[in-house]
Design a binder for these strands. Structure first.
Lengths: 194, 194, 194, 194
DNA sequence: AATGAATGAGCTTTCATTCAT
DNA sequence: TATGAATGAAAGCTCATTCAT
């Protein structure tokens, strides 16, 4: 298994840094190789091509991201608490790794459509987690029964994603995590005064 | 005024089509010129460089998009109706111009950070429209008084954007506009059963 | 006769200025047209192509240059005085027109070999003047009888040319004309202490 | 050290030939690469850009040229003999390498002002050699004591340069080296019959 | 005679990928 | 495994020249 080889991880970490620092289009393979401390050719012993590095970066990082969230919400008692925990962890994990935040919110979106499909595949488990929370909430009678799950998922993910992107674009000048509570309220209560 | 010159518009229209069909990075200037029926050099009489074409495409198209919405919501009586109208028009306008939808939701996001800043500038008036609807809703007592406007704006825009992107990525196999009602309800009522 | 038309001269004068200011390779036809106050296309009513402008500039300016010298030396009594007058006028005329000096000493040399042949043709009358001075000096018994005329011509022209080029490259920080006497002595007396 | 790498020299030699045959402006990088038997991209492993090839050609070739002359005149007994040796070697070295002669006398002069400055720097040691010969001749009492050294240098270099240029432009139809004696006499004795 | 919008050929340079060592 | 020198395809942009008005 490639993943246990040290160079594989060296290259992944180097790629995140190089892309965050230079942007996607200025991230030449040779730059990543240099930062990783390996020869250009060595990259191709571990990755099929440049795109494969990108996909792998996303798989590795997003895998951890999702695993962390999945585990954490298991301890929560109901859908509401689980949603809140998800929001908090989504924000806190990206807050802690600014390089990764820049890469996921800005640079990775510059890739071509084929790569986008791959990225969506990696994202799928995360979206499934959201779906299951919504479903659970409906079952528990906490959320309205008539919810269109894919639509709700798009609202939740779209809101979180947009919020993080804004924070990255504002150069992280405020505390993202402080917005978790309000975002949760907005999603659950909506705009209307009841 | 350049904008009245027919070639300017020919090139804009050709660019939208070429980018939608081939993707941003496979859209050579020569391809755009050919589709527009002009010489390569002619492009540079109307646009500073390739990036300028992209920016101009977005300015032109988004300008119309925003103007249309701004006018339409003026006739509505309250914030709720205005928000609904905005959602409907956001969806219907992109539904009617699939090329444009592909460009705005996928291809334009592949651009570099400088271009992203430009794009954000163009988007600003739209975000301001959303803000003013929220503010009006609070004043009218329709929306909760304590709303954090930037956050609400991110929820609304994030939700619409994610919904359209999903529709584009699913290759527009369903009617986007049919989701307007539900999206509106989700945004205003939230998830919670009250 | 084209030469009497005002636009012809406007373009010639504009070309000298533009080339002196921007250098040969940054002197686009459109820049010359703009400085001359005519349309790009108008240039081609008076000149066959860009190279023809260059050649004409040289013909016009060098023609005056040579005529002036030819006339002036007629009043001199012997070859020695004629040579001195030639040196003085060569230096003084280029001193008075720094734009022209830059063009003849630096920019015109950047042209291609075909143009160089043309330039040599224009220069021929000047070289002939030098030849005749040398011949006269030999006949008068002032110069040595055994002189190889082409070689002497190359020494005289080469020395003057190199001297002017150095002065231009040193950004004309000293008085070129003050060197006329010494140059004349060097050419006639040589280096040797007799 | 790059200079020992065979490809570096292959490219330099190819550049001299291609420029001599096609002229500076018709010497595409791809043509030089082909003649050198390397890929286009390889050029850029050894040279910063096209201009850098030119500068390097001049540095390499002129360096050898100057070294050769500097060494040879050390064995000569006085300034007069040294000057004669310099003239002979200046002529003979360019005679032996017609490609180089074309490049130095014609093509290199087509370059832009920045490159010209570089060329002047490379030439400086040669001019210094000339200066020191003149100075020595004055000290030895062979040359007149009152000589203006920069001016003498301009006469000597200007004469040699013009002589070589004429020979190149006449397509080398005569033996340049046969003129060395006469040129030396002209420079030392001048025109005047004493 | 004059205009100037339009043309389109032409070239340097980058960089992902390969392969001999 | 690992290296890194070498490859070569690919594309944005300029500008001399033309020609319809």
């Amino acid at each position: 298994m490639k993943k246990n080889k040290p160079k594989y991880n060296q290259i992944i970490e180097a790629a995140v840094e190089v892309i965050a620092e230079n942007g996607y289009h200025a991230s030449q393979v040779s730059k990543i190789a240099k930062k990783a401390g390996v020869a250009d050719g060595t990259i191709y012993l571990y990755f099929k091509n440049k795109e494969d590095i990108l996909i792998s970066v996303f798989e590795e990082k997003m895998g951890q991201f999702i695993n962390h969230i999945t585990e954490a919400i298991q301890n929560k008692n109901n859908a509401n608490e689980k949603l809140y925990e998800l929001i908090q962890l989504h924000f806190s994990q990206l807050s802690k790794d600014p390089h990764l935040a820049v890469v996921t919110q800005l640079e990775l979106r510059q890739s071509n459509p084929e790569l986008r499909l791959e990225i969506n595949n990696v994202l799928k488990p995360y979206l499934t987690v959201i779906d299951s929370i919504v479903q659970e909430g409906m079952k528990e009678g906490i959320f309205r029964n008539s919810l269109n799950i894919p639509l709700v998922r798009q609202m939740i993910f779209g809101t979180l994603d947009e919020t993080v992107t804004n924070w990255v674009m504002k150069e992280r000048k405020y505390q993202l995590i402080e917005q978790a509570k309000e975002v949760h309220t907005l999603l659950t209560e909506g705009l209307t005064l009841s």
